[in-house]
Amino acid sequence: MEVTVAGRETAAEGVASFELRRADGGPLPGFDAGAHIDVELPNGMVRQYSLCNDPAERGHYRIGVLLEAAGRGGSRSAHAQLLPGSRLRISAPRNHFALVPARHTLLLAGGIGVTPILSMAEQLARADASFELHYCSRSPARTAFVPRLRAAAFAAQVHFHFDDGDAAQRFDARAVLAQAGDTTHLYVCGPKGFMDHVILTARALGWSEGNIHYEYFAGAAVDSSADRGFEVQIAGSGQVVPVAPGQSVVQALAAHGIDVPVSCEQGVCGTCVMRVVQGEPEHRDMYFSAAEHAANHCFTPCCSRSKSARLVIDF
């Protein structure tokens, strides 16, 4: 869809918030809390951003973008080139981080990971559901959407935690997660270190794996120095393509005229997912769950590799 930037504001230090409306004035597709859209940025990159407005709002989408100085250029393009009146293309919403019914919901956000969590809080509040939101950031100046949260009908259920605050303000994962129960579901989003800490703490405290929900914004750092070459075979045609050390499956296929749609290129978004027909992948994505990794039915060719000498794949 083609949309127009109908509004832009500074949500926090280094965070810009954009309001998007259809260029033709029509309604946007509906979405549920936790959904994201693909955004084709002015520099040609495609990036995924969570929708952070109330899902009940049909006339516009809102996204928040953190300026990543050491990133690959997507956020720099958004901050420098997306101005009121700018036109760009986006996908329909997709959701890999949806809420499930629960007696109580615990929302944990770290930094810009608050964007899908905001939408969840709005949806839960409208349903008069039991929940609480813990929002962790470095400092008040770097905490996005504070006025909105303080003015929300659910403001009493929001707890702020700052790294540079006093001991009482800092986040204590064990204390927050202490009441594990089959009727409580946890949702966490933010930087990988924050998420890993929360998820590992929850598991150590006895939380059921099915009650822990999370969404990563970036892939994990991987030591590729010991990578070996392997082959991929296309199930439909039988074509065999060698994949060299230091080369992704996507790159190897592209060199042989087989284009695979990609977006994040870090194993986060799921755009490039392929079916595994035979062989054992070496999963390096943040998209699939541990159970899905163990099943080996699919893999992400943008970052994952193969443990077997040949991997037979299908689109």
Results as ranks from 00 to 15, higher is better:
242 P>G: 00
141 A>Q: 13
176 V>Y: 10
276 V>I: 15
133 L>H: 03
297 H>L: 09
60 H>I: 01
25 G>E: 09
162 F>A: 06
153 A>S: 11
86 S>R: 09
152 A>R: 08
247 Q>L: 01
306 S>H: 04
12 A>C: 04
137 S>Q: 09
71 G>D: 12
22 R>M: 07
195 M>Q: 07
300 T>F: 06
187 Y>M: 05
283 H>K: 09
252 A>G: 10
254 A>R: 15
193 G>S: 10
36 H>N: 07
240 V>H: 01
302 C>F: 14
16 A>L: 11
305 R>S: 06
256 H>F: 15
165 G>H: 08
212 I>R: 09
165 G>S: 05
281 P>V: 01
4 T>Y: 01
252 A>P: 13
163 D>C: 02
225 S>K: 13
60 H>A: 06
87 R>V: 03
45 M>Y: 02
260 V>K: 14
243 V>K: 08
307 K>G: 00
273 V>I: 12
309 A>M: 09
245 P>L: 02
218 A>L: 11
127 A>C: 05
301 P>H: 11
215 E>Y: 06
124 L>T: 04
3 V>S: 03
6 A>F: 00
270 G>I: 14
92 A>M: 03
271 T>K: 14
227 D>N: 05
115 T>G: 11
129 A>S: 05
100 V>N: 02
298 C>P: 00
168 A>W: 03
126 R>L: 00
70 A>H: 10
254 A>L: 10
264 C>A: 08
23 A>C: 07
239 Q>E: 09
267 G>K: 10
22 R>G: 04
198 V>K: 15
251 Q>N: 10
237 S>C: 09
194 F>I: 05
44 G>M: 08
186 L>Y: 09
17 S>R: 14
251 Q>G: 02
199 I>D: 04
71 G>R: 07
155 A>V: 11
149 L>R: 06
175 A>Q: 14
279 G>H: 10
42 P>R: 10
178 A>C: 01
109 A>L: 05
176 V>N: 03
250 V>W: 14
212 I>Q: 02
191 P>R: 00
37 I>S: 13
155 A>F: 11
80 A>Q: 14
263 S>M: 01
192 K>T: 09
263 S>P: 12
226 A>S: 11
282 E>R: 13
19 E>R: 15
280 E>H: 10
125 A>M: 04
147 P>G: 04
285 D>G: 03
62 R>V: 13
93 P>E: 12
302 C>S: 10
169 Q>R: 11
254 A>V: 04
137 S>Y: 04
3 V>Y: 08
152 A>S: 15
48 Q>E: 04
192 K>V: 03
148 R>H: 11
